[in-house]
Amino acid sequence: MAAAGDRKKTACVTGGNGYIASLLIKMLLEKGYVVKTTKELIEPAVQGTLNVLRSCVKAGTVKRVVLTSSTAAVSSRPLEGDGNVLDEESWSDVEYLSAKRTGLWAYPVSKVLLEKAASEFAEEHGISLVTLCPSVTVGEAPDRKVYTTVPAILSLLSGDEAELRVLKGIEKASGSVPLVHVQDVCLAQLFVVEKEGVPDGRYICNGLDTTIAETAKFLADKYPEYNVNTDLFGEGLEKPIAPLPSTKLINQGFQFNYNTLAEIYDDMVGYGKTLGILPN
């Protein structure tokens, strides 16, 4: 979450030691912002978010609040057929997820509850609130902790079976493998703060939709030295059945820098080597 002040070009970034936040802070400093951040990672809980919003109300100088949620709050729902085009009006099914309690069910549930609580609070207190919902976020960032989805996205190259199971879980839950580069996420956060006239509301931030099978074929051709196995995916999707288009954000004038597998993995392979996920 980032809040921008009117006069002093000040930004507050919560979770300052996190993956996305580490790059956002770097970008803000390069643009001349004064950046205030926590020294601890605030848990993505409803109460923590509301505490930040209460502080914004108390300060009385906050121009806009940007809440970073996830497309997990959009796409985690029963999916049938291949006509499940999702948009900002789509919500993950909390009752369904809470009843099934399989996989990472608590994560999308927490994001839905967080978003709705924040939206209600902002409306009641007259706060300008934009919620960005990035998809699976990848790419190089200043943060060097390996606790993101980066290892899962690199699992086809690394051969890590546990991380490959995570990737398969993402595809099953989302109806695709939706990817967005962390740089594009941070640029979108800056965009909705700095561009005049961007309305409050919810915005999907997704660079492209792919599948494990499609990605494996691409990687096998692009990086033959990794001996990518393309014969593991009989039960996977041949094509995305639930695309997550960023039409609303693009219509405001935002442009993605990374929207092909080549652009994303050119950056990811070097980052994977830096993190020790891939051999040098």
Rank of each mutant, 00 (worst) to 15 (best):
D184P: 03
V182W: 08
L129D: 01
Q183K: 14
K168F: 06
S155K: 11
K168Q: 14
P142K: 12
E95P: 11
D160L: 11
P178H: 03
V112H: 07
T137N: 12
L154P: 00
P199G: 06
L129A: 00
G169D: 07
E196R: 13
G201S: 10
G201C: 08
A173T: 14
K116W: 05
Q183R: 13
L164P: 08
V180H: 03
G197D: 12
Y203I: 02
A99E: 15
E123H: 11
D160V: 06
A122W: 00
E196G: 06
G201A: 13
G126P: 02
G103V: 04
V94F: 15
V180C: 06
S174E: 10
L97Q: 04
V198L: 12
K116S: 07
Y147M: 13
S98W: 10
H181C: 06
S98L: 10
Q189K: 07
E124Q: 03
A106N: 10
V150E: 05
A106L: 08
P178L: 06
P151W: 00
S128A: 12
S155W: 11
L179S: 02
V177A: 03
A162K: 15
V180Q: 09
E95H: 09
G126I: 04
E196C: 04
K168I: 07
A173F: 07
K172C: 11
Y147E: 15
G139E: 09
V138E: 06
G126M: 01
E95F: 08
G126L: 01
E171D: 13
D143T: 06
H181R: 00
L187E: 14
Y147L: 09
A162V: 14
V136C: 14
S158M: 13
A99F: 07
K100C: 14
G169C: 13
V130Q: 03
V109H: 01
K145Y: 05
G103T: 07
A173P: 09
A106Q: 11
G159D: 07
V109P: 00
D143S: 14
T148P: 12
L157K: 05
V94L: 13
K168M: 10
C133K: 02
S155N: 11
F121S: 06
W105N: 06
R202T: 01
V180D: 01
W105M: 08
L164G: 11
A117G: 07
R202C: 03
D143P: 00
R144N: 11
G126E: 04
K168V: 02
S135G: 08
K195P: 06
L190R: 09
Y147N: 15
D93I: 12
A173C: 15
T149C: 14
E171S: 15
V138L: 12
D200P: 11
V177I: 07
V130G: 03
L190N: 06
L114Q: 09
I127G: 00
T137P: 03
T149A: 15
L187Y: 08
P142G: 12
E124P: 00
D184N: 08
V150K: 11
K172G: 14
Y203P: 04
E161Q: 15
Y203A: 02
E163V: 03
E140P: 12
G169V: 00
P134N: 09
T137G: 03
G175S: 12
L154H: 04
L113C: 08
V193N: 02
L190S: 08
V112Y: 06
G201V: 13
A122D: 05
A122L: 02
P151C: 02
